[in-house]
Amino acid sequence: MTAADGGGTTTLVVRVENKAGVLARVAGLFARRGFNIESLAVAPTDDERFSRLTIVVGVDAAPMEQVVKQLDKLVNVVDIQELNPAVSVERELMMATVRADPSIRGQILDLVRVFQATVLNVGYDEIMVSLTGSPSRVDDFEDLLRPYGIVDVQRTGKVALPKLVKSAPDPLTP
């Protein structure tokens, strides 16, 4: 079951050693069980010894438990957080090239304005835009662009961090 047909998804944030082959070890654990990775974002952290992987897998939490434990056993995996979308802030970047005959370019620019997206490049009958936002907002933007004819689209896969604590300790420390 995948997110697309209504099943759950799990988002894992995995801190790994920044070494050759680590991504293959991580991906292999999912592949061996037939779990498809829906999106994956990888980048070094502020400490260059480590990278952070944000992995979205189209599997409910229950069968994930064993995978997470196996993942944790990998020597190069430092720590793993399972992120619940309700308590995390998620962002994704999309770049898209859309058909934009000069006669309808204005309509697309309206959408860009509404979504606070960015125009990256303009051709005589195409326009390249980008949007950073929550995955669902990016979905909406992509859906609205589609009727105009998407020539090319590239999404990064989401990255996420846990939401911050709202209630301050009492008394508030300066």
Binding site: A20, G21, G28, R32
Partner: peptide, 14 residues
């Protein structure tokens, strides 16, 4: 070798 043995070793090194 490291690719082939990845899933049958506790860890491997190249």
């Amino acid at each position: 070798t490291t690719g082939i043995t990845m899933s049958v070793t506790k860890h491997n090194y190249l």
